[in-house]
Design a protein around this nucleic acid. Sequence first.
DNA 1: GGTGTGCCTGACAACGATGTCAGGCATCAT
DNA 2: ATGATGCCTGACATCGTTGTCAGGCACACC
Lengths: 350, 350
Amino acid sequence: MTTMSNRYQAEGAKSRPTMRHVAALAGVGIKTVSRVMNDEPGVSEATRQRVLGASQQLNYQLDMAAGSLRRAGRQTLSVGLLLPSVANPFSSEIHRAMEDALAARGIAVFAASLDDDAEREKALVTAFLGRRVDGLVLTPIAKSQAYVIPEHSRDLPIVFIDREPVGIEADAVVTDNAVGAAKAATHLISHGHTRIAYMGDRTDIQTARERRRGFTEELGRAGIATSTVPVREGLHDEESARLATLELLRAEEPPTAIFSSQNLVTFGVMRALKELGLNKRVALVGFDDFTLADMMEPGVTVIAQHPDRIGKLAAERLLARIDGDHGAAQTYVVPSELITRGSGELRPPE
Amino acid sequence: MTTMSNRYQAEGAKSRPTMRHVAALAGVGIKTVSRVMNDEPGVSEATRQRVLGASQQLNYQLDMAAGSLRRAGRQTLSVGLLLPSVANPFSSEIHRAMEDALAARGIAVFAASLDDDAEREKALVTAFLGRRVDGLVLTPIAKSQAYVIPEHSRDLPIVFIDREPVGIEADAVVTDNAVGAAKAATHLISHGHTRIAYMGDRTDIQTARERRRGFTEELGRAGIATSTVPVREGLHDEESARLATLELLRAEEPPTAIFSSQNLVTFGVMRALKELGLNKRVALVGFDDFTLADMMEPGVTVIAQHPDRIGKLAAERLLARIDGDHGAAQTYVVPSELITRGSGELRPPE
DNA sequence: GGTGTGCCTGACAACGATGTCAGGCATCAT
DNA sequence: ATGATGCCTGACATCGTTGTCAGGCACACC
């Protein structure tokens, strides 16, 4: 039979060897092969070597999917990771940190991009559930995550990152958005600014709202009438931020400092400032650190997030849940950090 | 029985419903449920609705792993992607492009980072094979990829990206490294430079060698004695590139132009030039485009690769192979592009 | 010699699904 | 009435592996 099937498949796809093939070649039972491949005790050294030899000869490899089908607990040693985009630097650093933390346990990561699309979020969660991942880490974008309640209460570990979920109680790992934005405000105020503009992302994004709240509350605390604060929101890319900034700076009584709530927005602001030759006159603090920020003219002061820590922490929480931690859901806050590089330390003109 | 198991598991992990549960609730056979879930024909509309209702009520979801166990061809609708690092911008753009091309077919992507570690390459390939991926896309780093020959000849689709594999004939998608580097050389020569330094990456990386070859060959063609070309290699990060550049520029007869073979090296060179106040005097062309290159002083001229096209093409080739294309292995070359921004157009001092 | 104690080992069912196949029931032509 | 033809449907084996369990064998002890 073996011969038959070999000949039959000689010119096409050769099929992968199974335990049965290894067992036949080694002259043992299939269960013994299983024991050897899984490093289970109770196999004599001689048998072990025979099986190992046969398996190498056939280039045999255990089929994890088939194994976990029968195995208790059904672990697949894979998890799903849903990010705004795998190509986004912030996301990909989280991804990397998680990978490192999970690789130690032999867990592989399915990664996917959401593009701020709520439908895609649900579709991808479904796709990963169908693959029976051991856990899910996701950046929520849909209005509510209640749709995963059935799975979550069936004990599927889920950790939300960057944004807290709505409609479900589950672990989350987030940056101290409001506090970070407040730090930016304090920093600019302490350098003499009172007319500080806020350039913000789409308001349907929770972190954007938090940053705005932290920022304006801090201005209020400092005695600056929040009604006088120029606020531009709904900026989701470089170009819209650039245009909004140009408009703002050409208006009467332009701001002497700008706080931008996100990477791409910061880039747009930088472009506008440079165009108008104001890059060394108008102060700027951006939320999110970025490559080459120190090479700008002047260097760009930022509120840096720590995607590596977020990723690591998320992975640790996920592993704890996978290992059976049934404690109450909790939100973990990773502190942001002010990094001064020049642009945030410019003083207003006399 | 159903009641029993519900009560039993009320306080712990509820188990996931299976087809049997759905079948029991709908009062049909298990195979009928299978037909409905897979949109197979031959089910009356009335039965279909009953099954659909039951499956929704139980929140049932098909188990892909179990399904593909029996299904012909054993497709898992997942592929493995091995990158230098998922956090590397070049890699993550490839990743994104692949994801988009594969998502249309419902294929999920396992992504992992190699960190230029040959052992990790093999370990991760093994890990993905154990998960029975339908295909593999990988950036080779090990000296030879002959170890995947058994799987490849068993019809596992494999596409190499960025670098060509060694010891195996398989599809590859790469940038025209030598041509791109030659373009950089031509560009600098046409702007009057004859003393052009080459700052290169580790020579064990194939693309680095190709870039160097293309660069020096072009200088030779232009009549520049290659023995006079300052070459610094083995630079793998910003700091080593910065130091090498400082040393080079402080030596006698410093170059009037620099070609850097890679992103991080370019950053190091930029830092050194700025430190010495030479950023507007010494010309620079870097291999690899990067964010904010146009915001530098001056803007940085680069040979841009097209990671999005590389990713898309790799995904297309992989799908073709998955669909049974048994044509000879082929290497696909994605052309690079010269983007002028200022730094590469600086002329040498008289 | 009988028996208990470990240590190895393999037969068998099961995991959750799909492929195969045969059977039941209308409908329709003869 | 009889047989042929389709359409639905479910019993059963099977995918590759692991859990369970019982059996065989060697050794030591009484």
